Amino acid sequence: MKHTYQINGLSCGGCIARVKKTMEAHPDIEKTEIFLSPKGKTIISMKEKLSVEDLQKQLNKLEGYTITEVI
């Protein structure tokens, strides 16, 4: 299942690499694609649909980032 999100707080390729690694460390996340254009657009492939709260909890392992679902 692929779902689209917006991650705020990204400013460079290094940020994207850290966030991608952190998100993919979650056992239910198979793949994370993060784009600089449009800035922060994120597509996450999951085994099971995780809530935005669950995704934010995973993202909170890093400081300064927030995630919202794009509908």
Rank of each mutant, 00 (worst) to 15 (best):
Q6E: 10
I7C: 03
I7K: 08
I7E: 10
N8A: 15
N8T: 13
N8C: 03
G9E: 07
G9W: 15
L10R: 07
L10M: 11
S11D: 09
C12F: 14
G13R: 08
G13N: 14
G13S: 13
G14M: 13
G14A: 14
G14S: 15
C15E: 09
C15I: 03
C15H: 12
C15K: 13
C15D: 06
A17S: 13
R18P: 00
R18D: 04
R18T: 12
K20I: 01
K20H: 07
K20P: 00
K20T: 15
K20N: 11
K21H: 07
K21L: 07
K21G: 01
T22Q: 12
T22H: 01
M23G: 03
M23V: 04
M23D: 04
M23W: 00
E24H: 02
E24A: 02
E24L: 07
A25N: 12
A25M: 05
A25H: 10
A25W: 01
H26D: 08
H26S: 04
H26C: 03
H26Q: 04
P27W: 12
P27F: 08
P27Y: 08
D28T: 10
D28E: 15
D28Q: 15
I29W: 09
I29F: 10
I29C: 06
E30R: 13
K31C: 05
K31D: 05
K31Q: 13
T32Y: 08
T32M: 08
E33C: 02
I34M: 08
I34S: 01
I34T: 03
F35R: 11
F35Q: 09
F35V: 01
L36M: 15
L36F: 14
S37D: 06
S37F: 14
P38A: 11
P38K: 01
P38R: 02
K39R: 15
K39F: 04
G40R: 09
G40S: 09
G40M: 08
G40P: 00
K41G: 00
K41T: 00
T42N: 02
I43T: 09
I44W: 11
I44A: 05
I44L: 13
M46Q: 13
M46I: 03
M46V: 09
M46C: 10
K47L: 11
K47H: 15
K47F: 14
E48T: 12
E48Q: 14
K49Y: 14
K49I: 05
L50I: 03
L50N: 04
L50D: 04
L50F: 06
S51Y: 12
S51H: 10
V52Q: 11
V52M: 06
E53T: 15
E53S: 14
E53R: 10
D54R: 11
D54C: 06
L55G: 07
L55H: 10
L55S: 04
Q56G: 01
Q56K: 14
K57D: 03
K57M: 11
K57Q: 12
Q58Y: 02
Q58G: 00
K61W: 00
K61F: 01
K61I: 00
L62G: 03
L62H: 02
L62T: 06
E63T: 07
E63A: 07
G64I: 05
G64D: 06
G64H: 04
G64F: 13
G64N: 13
